[in-house]
Nucleic acid binder design. Structure first.
Lengths: 137, 137
DNA sequence: CAAAACCGTTGACAATGGTCCACAGTTTAT
DNA sequence: ATAAACTGTGGACCATTGTCAACGGTTTTG
């Protein structure tokens, strides 16, 4: 598949694909019996792009994702270095997940309070949902 | 409290606090009966900084957090605009949360495969954990 | 009373993650 | 066969989220 099709199917821009490729996240080849310089992307590039999306949502940098994808897509023995890396990232992502859940709850509380009291602001929020307002600390 | 104490207690740098303040996330006052120009931060700035941390982990930009915090910390009637904003952010964060969970599972699978097969790479991963490898799509 | 630690302001710098533009060549549709 | 759509390359540019260095003033500590 060529870059345009990949871009359409994975819903990212061509420039983004090239950016990822420069950073080692995606791989492509040239068709040897072609006179052009067009690059051919494997089908699984779509999957890779989906993984990249999720990894970014989980807060990983391009550099980290590069490392992960190379391990994930490769056949390569287990290095201890890689184990440490994965353990680190698992802890990191789990932490961010917890923070996101806290924040989502806060968003939802705030939304509820707004719906209940379209007039007076949010101080209607009953402290029954983890909102211990430790103002005096 | 002055900036140094806030920085220590909330575990962010002074520069970061000033950066947030310039962007309207944090508020402070000057002590009127003081000859200096030192700013005084309220106790709840610590809470605000904690919320900022969670919100960032959840993927919000500074601009979005500014909007949210102003609504969250203020007494101000419910604008429909704010309701739309909150609904948007709830959807966004929920989406990222799901993506993060998918990615965390992938990380854990990869880690497991690495532990099980320290030699041969990951192709030992049995497809029994949501790894439908739709290469031909 | 000094020195050390703190404070505010300004402006430069940096890393990250792209996006855009101009150019020239290639393929596809009409 | 010709226009429209696609492709690669190179480099400039952008927003975001801070961080750092320098300067002069203030407070606290020894």
């Amino acid at each position: 598949m060529r870059i345009g099709e990949l871009a359409r199917r994975a819903e990212v821009s061509r420039d983004t694909i090239r950016f990822y490729e420069r950073h080692g996240l995606i791989r492509s080849d040239t068709d040897p019996d072609a006179s052009n310089s067009y690059r051919i992307y494997p089908e699984d590039a779509i999957l890779t792009l989906e993984v990249i999306r999720d990894a970014q949502a989980a807060g990983l940098s391009i550099a980290d994702i590069t490392l992960f994808v190379s391990q994930f897509m490769a056949q390569g023995g287990g290095a201890e270095e890689m184990e440490r890396f994965l353990d680190d990232k698992i802890a990191e992502v789990a932490g961010r997940l917890a923070a996101s859940q806290r924040f989502l709850a806060l968003l939802q509380q705030t939304r509820q309070a707004l719906a209940r009291a379209p007039q007076d602001g949010l101080n209607e929020m009953e402290d029954g949902a983890g909102n211990e307002n430790r103002t005096r600390n």
